[in-house]
Design a protein around this nucleic acid. Structure first.
Lengths: 358, 358
DNA sequence: CTGAAAGCGCTTACAG
DNA sequence: CTGAAAGCGCTTACAG
């Protein structure tokens, strides 16, 4: 019994170790050129009989082609990398999901790389993707402006593009217009308009990290809409923050520490993303400040949990999955040599229970 | 101006296209063997002068080694795949984050593949990883029992292991004990004990998908703890569900449709994961059933949003990031030929505002 | 329709 | 310390 088991095990391992195209060709009794033509599904004429024997041999040996050898020859491996700022952020999770949906059964493997909002890490991931001769890179998050992003990253991106890889941006960055994006400024302005429509005139803004392009665009939307409504901008109501729930909670404390009173000095808190709004809701709840009776709260992105908070969160819906899907499709188009036309997707204000008129 | 720009651009592209080790060797005036010894950081003696010239040439050409060529030679590429059930599920996002934390500056690239809980997709991702000669595969989710998981998957896993790749499981599955895991049964039993301690005796259970090993283990924990407490198990209070918030909301409707009354027929709803609990909270809120006054609700996993619901969610904390971190470390150990000792991590009951005594 | 041979970019015994 | 050469597994003109 034990012997039999050992022998069987060895056999499996042996098949695994030897299943190169050479083995398949030998077993089928054909040249490796012919074997290659069959297993690589090239549309090259091979007699039905020969084809069948090769296929049988391949199955017999559990043959899986070596993507490295193939990639070395083609100078490209069917892998598309998605660079995100934070895997655990639902904003990026939704985008990645969209990319994966579009990539399903396309033959491309999707690799997600998380920069943790560090330019050096991002650059090193892109370098790795370059060293693997990835077919494409999708930058899901917006550009940063630290040294690595300015020195190293563009070099790798240029090399990638120079060798025929597709590069797609889903957010604004230094190198030009994103191929697929959303009108961050307009979307945020629309939410300000909605709040003004509800009677709010003193709207605090948790602005996100000013090192990020998206955050700066959203801030611009805030300023633009207030100016358009003829409302004076009170700089003390603008808080520079991170992009996390914890940052939102801290920002509330910071805002209150200035002596600003909710309900009078500000009647609404608008957040540059939903995660900030989640932290804001939580901290206000802890402080016994009622939302929306004492103060209204609104977010931006419409991540799935935004419907599940109590009160449910008013926010601006971004078509995140769609962005991911279109991003992947754009990469494939670029790979086919098509010229990409930048596409700006619509946003939509969604008013739920965290905001009310005054 | 335009000409100058064009010329510069061409140069960049040219460097990108030609930067093979052959070019570096030529520019440095050495053999490719010597160039390789320098750039691959092999600890092979090379004179300081030669080394400096090679390094300079490499920098000049923006040389990035071809990982495919190197991988072809070694039959392994420094990539570790993490197979998850769903990228957008915070449970998996946290684990992936842990893996990435541990992999940081290890030289390995982490690839996340999302099976969407379909065995066929999972098998095809593992096949892709196999074709790329990945150094390791970490299965973050538990095994499924559909055909692809029984037929195709084990073949690829055996081949991967046979060729020296590391395979690590973070959850129970058909092939044996997970290398890194958590006591799902004991953890869930502990929460039942806690609820019983609060005076609950009629505890409904949203059980998750019975096709998943983890779900079955958690259900076993439910049964075990109730039996130990001498409480009769009412099968009508056990609802088979998915693992999403929507499934939780539906399950609440299903439970109520049986005619069971909250507060009398059941005083608590225990969920096999936090996402189910989130959906449960939301649906109960919509129905005007108060938590915890009318019914207590508890989850399992302690994903980050569990603290941010209203009321905040009582749950069982799983060391998710730690599991990811240890999973990656285990993969590296296996790669170094070390024998892995299965490790079971502790869980902890966390009581927040969604549960109360009766 | 089939096969022999070159070559993708690298590493590593082997010889000096 | 340095280099010439073989070879990893595949694809693809080229010749038949």
């Amino acid at each position: 019994m034990a012997v039999g088991h050992g022998a069987r095990r060895r056999q499996v391992v042996r098949a695994a170790l030897l299943s190169s195209i050479t083995e398949v060709a030998r077993l089928a009794g054909v040249s490796i050129a012919t074997a290659s033509r069959v297993v690589s599904e090239a549309d090259y004429p091979v007699s039905a009989h020969t084809r069948a024997r090769v296929l049988l041999a391949a199955r017999e040996l559990d043959y899986v082609p070596n993507a490295l050898a193939r990639g070395l020859l083609k100078s490209q491996i069917p892998v598309v990398g998605v660079i995100v700022h934070d895997t655990t952020d639902p904003y990026f999770a939704e985008i990645v999901r969209g990319v994966e949906d579009a990539a399903e059964s396309s033959g491309y493997l999707v690799i997600t790389c998380s920069s943790e909002r560090e330019g050096a890490r991002e650059a090193s991931y892109v370098r790795l993707l370059r060293s693997m001769r990835a077919a494409g890179v999708i930058f899901a998050g917006s550009g940063m402006d630290d040294e690595a992003s300015i020195e190293e990253l563009p070099r790798h991106v240029a090399a990638l593009q120079g060798s025929g890889a597709a590069v797609v941006h889903l957010s604004p960055h230094a190198l030009g217009e994103p191929e697929i994006s959303v009108d961050n400024q307009g979307g945020l302005a629309a939410m300000v308009d909605a709040l003004v429509g509800l009677g709010h005139r003193r709207i605090a803004f948790l602005a996100g990290p000013h090192t990020l392009y998206v955050a700066r665009e959203r801030l611009a939307g805030y300023r633009r809409a207030l100016a358009a409504a003829g409302i004076n901008i009170d700089e003390r109501l603008i808080v520079d923050t991170g992009f996390s729930a914890e940052a939102g909670a801290r920002a509330v404390d910071q805002l209150l520490a200035t002596g600003a009173k909710p309900g009078t000095d500000f009647t609404a808190i608008l957040c540059a993303n939903d995660l900030l709004a989640l932290g804001t809701l939580q901290r206000l709840h802890e402080l016994g400040i009622d939302v929306p009776d004492d103060v209204s709260v609104a977010g931006f992105d419409d991540i799935p949990v935004a419907q599940m908070t109590a009160p449910s969160l008013s926010t601006v819906r971004l078509p995140l999955r769609e962005m991911g899907r279109l991003g992947f499709k754009a990469a494939i188009c670029a790979l086919n040599g098509e010229q990409l036309v930048p596409q700006v997707l619509p946003t939509q204000v969604v008013l739920r229970d965290s905001t009310r008129g005054i």
